[in-house]
């Protein structure tokens, strides 16, 4: 198939748009697609993850949230980005946006990642405390299971270990 725009090169991008039941087809070569990029999703440079994200975000009012609540402007106090602007561009303005939009983020992050809590690497310098906290959490789980299995000697050892870590946290 030949590109419908320049009529010279073979069409490599095929795109069907259906809006309100009205169907439009595009068959373009790469360079023409690049030029029309903005209007055609899937064209090189034209369609990014951010478009897709804002698509996901746009559906939010339909997720059973109170419409009135939606109308209240949520704004990041640090950089001034509003939540509706974030929804449009799919990107945060600064790291504080995560705090100011935190009420809205869980469902979004779950949809994108299937999860909303970090379990990976923790930075050494700024994350020292967090590292200990995470260890304590794991140890407490282990402690409970030792108690359940009546392995009290082991449990006592774990209890001491937890105490040491808690001591370390208060020193940090």
């Amino acid at each position: 198939m030949i590109c419908q725009e320049c009529g010279e090169k073979p069409a490599t991008l095929h795109f069907t748009k259906i809006v309100n039941g009205e169907k439009t087809e595009f068959h373009l070569c790469e360079s023409c697609a690049r030029e029309k990029g903005d209007s055609i999703p899937g064209a090189p440079n034209g369609f990014s993850i951010h478009n897709l994200l804002s698509g996901i975000l746009e559906f939010e009012p339909a997720m059973g949230q109170n419409i009135k609540q939606q109308k209240k402007v949520i704004r990041c106090e640090n950089c001034g980005l509003t939540y509706s602007q974030f929804r449009k561009i799919g990107r945060f303005g600064c790291s504080s946006c995560y705090n100011h939009f935190s009420g809205q983020l869980d469902p979004l992050l779950k949809r994108v990642h299937g999860n909303s809590v970090h379990v990976g690497k923790i930075p050494i310098k700024s994350g020292g405390k967090i590292q200990f906290k995470r260890q304590i959490k794991d140890l407490k789980k282990e402690l409970q299971s030792k108690i359940d299995h009546e392995e009290f000697e082991e449990a006592a050892r774990l209890r001491d270990e937890i105490r040491d870590l808690e001591q370390k946290i208060s020193e940090v």
Partner: peptide, 13 residues
């Protein structure tokens, strides 16, 4: 870096 969200990035992805 945030304890709950990890390394904070411009794009939520």
């Amino acid at each position: 870096f945030d304890e709950k969200r990890g390394y904070l990035t411009s794009c939520p992805t």
